[in-house]
């Protein structure tokens, strides 16, 4: 299992390919790999978005993801799980997150990948600050989700 919070852009497909060739994943052992790639849009809530800053709670994020990933692996008997998530400054079309789950059969891979991603969305301590583009005006900023 690998869980990393990255401050630099990454290519999810290259990462997936590289990870699948790691010695821990034996060819012939897995029969399924389900993946989810989340990518930044250039619009949100009816506004054009130029840029996004992703902040996280270092320490808690990794701890939360690792703890839940262990549960997902056990629950679905996954063979392996890969989670990469960006922080820092992102631009439209930049990959935000990659979740990949390997298992013997497709159902476990689909379910494990989905469950991990849903947990990440609802519990992992990440926050987004968008920079909006207003036609003819200065850029302005807003947090996605607020108290």
């Amino acid at each position: 299992m690998l869980i990393e919070i990255r401050s630099a852009p990454f290519d999810p497909w290259a990462e997936l390919n590289a990870y699948q060739n790691n010695p821990g994943l034996k060819p012939g052992n897995y029969g399924a790999c389900a993946t989810f790639v989340g990518t930044m849009r250039d619009y949100n809530l009816g506004d054009d978005v130029a840029q996004m800053q992703l902040q996280h709670y270092e320490g808690m994020t990794q701890h939360q993801l690792s703890s839940f990933a262990d549960q997902v692996i056990d629950r679905h008997q996954l063979l392996d799980l890969l989670i990469l998530h960006r922080v820092g400054d992102l631009y439209p079309n930049d990959p935000i997150v990659l979740v990949a789950a390997w298992s013997a059969h497709r159902a476990a891979a689909f379910d494990g990948c989905r469950q991990m991603m849903e947990h990440l969305k609802s519990h992992a301590t990440f926050w987004k600050k968008e920079t909006l583009v207003e036609s003819g005006g200065p850029a302005n900023h807003r947090w996605v989700g607020n108290v």
Partner: peptide, 10 residues
Amino acid sequence: VAFFPPVNGG
């Protein structure tokens, strides 16, 4: 102790 708004990663 940490305080924060609803999370929204991914």
